[in-house]
């Protein structure tokens, strides 16, 4: 446990150091580049790009969480039950859409820049959260629900006090999956001129500079691993309260 927290801490410090003062790491990348080419990305601040990247992902995830959880609640209520079989099949079909396709189709509709990326992240992020909200809400123990009804909780009290808290770990797992997918998809967003870390990679690919590709890739990968890890921690705390233990393997 302590060993993994140490690894986490080191990874975080390395990442923070690299995005704030990348020049300090130039010596590591010099062997990879052609003579005369810049070793460190020089067309913008890594820190700013990282923050922009995170902002897009964060906003999109919040938007998809709100809509997906609301939809998940709706189709599990008696009034929305007619939409349940359809919504399940739509989730299955939706997952066969590659995120890049969603991104690509959004561009002609809303133009270049942040907007198509946001739309793609938002739409694609809906699926895992919606699916997990459904799973979480439908696997709430029928006994607990019966007891709640028997004690005179109304539908809203049952939802807020029993169903949502019990479904929380599963919903959180969906949000985590959604964030990780979005981090990657946002990178591809740079092909449609969205601000973010993808810029670094694309610049590297265009100028044939492996060092740039490596820098962009490393920062995104470290971000993803750290966020994945951190959200997993939150989930375990939520699940432990319920006496359920997530698999030891993350």
């Amino acid at each position: 446990m302590t060993a993994t927290s140490l690894v986490r801490l080191i990874a975080f410090l390395l990442l923070a150091a690299f995005i704030t003062m990348p020049q300090g790491f130039a010596f590591l990348f010099e062997p990879l580049i052609a003579p005369g080419a810049p070793a460190i990305y020089n067309q913008g601040s890594l820190l700013v790009l990282t923050l922009q990247h995170l902002r897009t992902v964060c906003l999109a995830t919040i938007a998809s969480t709100v809509l997906a959880v609301a939809l998940g609640i709706f189709v599990t209520r008696p009034s929305g039950a007619e939409f349940l079989p359809l919504s399940r099949s739509l989730v299955n079909i939706g997952q066969t859409f590659p995120p890049i396709a969603v991104l690509a189709i959004a561009v002609p509709l809303v133009g270049f820049g942040e907007k198509p990326t946001f739309i793609a992240l938002f739409l694609y992020g809906l699926l895992p959260i919606f699916e997990n909200t459904l799973t979480g809400l439908t696997q709430v123990s029928p006994l607990a629900l019966e007891a709640a009804r028997g004690m005179g909780m109304n539908a809203r009290q049952r939802l807020v006090q029993v169903e949502l808290p019990l479904a929380l770990p599963v919903i959180l797992a969906g949000i985590r999956l959604s964030v990780i997918i979005s981090l990657g998809t946002a990178t591809i967003g740079s092909t449609v001129a969205a601000k973010g870390l993808g810029e670094v990679i694309i610049a590297g690919l265009q100028s044939n500079n492996i060092a740039f590709v490596l820098q962009g890739g490393l920062v995104v990968a470290l971000l993803a691993v750290l966020i994945h890890d951190g959200l997993g921690l939150v989930e375990r705390v939520a699940a432990r309260k319920l006496g359920r233990f997530l698999n030891e393997v993350p």
Binding site: G184, L218, A221
Partner: peptide, 24 residues
């Protein structure tokens, strides 16, 4: 434990980043 942990780290690396990382 070792295999699962390292593979799930690979899984979290975004595709374009992994493509880029493997180029080197």
């Amino acid at each position: 434990t070792a295999v699962m942990q390292s593979l799930s780290i690979v899984q979290t690396v975004p595709s374009i980043a992994l493509f880029g990382l493997l180029m080197a």
